[in-house]
């Protein structure tokens, strides 16, 4: 993937670039707002990772201008703030996701991947298929092999998110945000609890588990469960 990183802090930027490159991505960088906007306007990026506070041109304003020019590159905001309306401000300016520093690198990578995999606007999927599982978004029904798997609404959403990002690492925080709408870290292992229920329902016939737990990071639903 081709990724644009706009960040004014040199050490954060270096870490960002080297880690993304290590994960196999081509990264271009900018250290201030105007330079970032110039690069981003090319529109040739799969994802842009943009710091909220930039010299020359604020990150919010950068994305606002980008969107005004019709560039739809998915944007992940980085910020040190977590003020009460920061997230909403970021999304309203045209950002697609939001990550508060300090963050684990796996978290950043998972979000970049999730953004890159977003279906283009206008294409609506009704059935998701992966790992021999079929998830019907209209009938709200899940089948594994030929069996119907009976899921609670949140378990369904959990599986849906995993399937939309099949083959990629999905973090606990991504799941909290997308399945429950919790943009904070609860103490209780809500995700783990629901994940274990989902697994026991999916694997009730002792099939191989399609969901892999990555310790300290999150989960991967393998496309081909075997």
């Amino acid at each position: 993937m081709k990724i644009l990183a706009v960040e004014d802090d040199a050490s954060t930027l270096a870490l960002l670039v080297s880690s993304l490159a290590e994960a196999g991505h081509a990264v271009e960088r900018a250290t201030d707002g105007p330079a970032g906007l110039r690069l981003a306007l090319d529109g040739a990026y799969d994802v842009a990772v943009i710091d909220r506070m930039l010299p020359g041109l604020d990150g919010l304003e950068l994305v606002r201008r980008l969107r005004a020019s019709g560039v739809q590159t998915p944007v992940l905001f980085l910020t040190t703030m977590s003020g009460i309306s920061d997230r909403v401000d970021g999304l309203e300016a045209g950002g697609d996701d939001y990550l508060v520093k300090p963050f684990a690198f796996a978290e950043l990578l998972a979000r970049v991947h999730a953004l890159a995999r977003r279906p283009p606007l206008g294409r609506v999927e009704t059935v998701l298929r992966a790992a021999g599982i079929e998830l019907d978004l209209v009938a709200r029904r899940v089948r594994r092999a030929e069996d119907i798997v009976d899921l609670q609404p949140r378990e369904f959403s959990l599986l849906e998110f995993l399937m939309r990002n099949a083959g990629q690492l999905v973090t606990r925080r991504q799941l909290l945000e997308n399945v429950w709408g919790f943009h904070f870290d609860p103490r209780t292992n809500i995700v783990e609890t629901h994940m274990s229920r989902l697994r026991s329902k999916l694997n009730k016939n002792a099939e191989p588990d399609p969901i892999e737990t990555v310790r300290g990071a999150g989960y991967i639903l393998h496309v081909d469960a075997s």
């Binding site: 609404p153 949140r154 429950w180 709408g181 919790f182 209780t188 292992n189 809500i190 609890t193 629901h194 229920r197």
Partner: peptide
Amino acid sequence: QTVAEAYAAP
């Protein structure tokens, strides 16, 4: 409702 639902299982 979301909170109640999220915490019923835990």
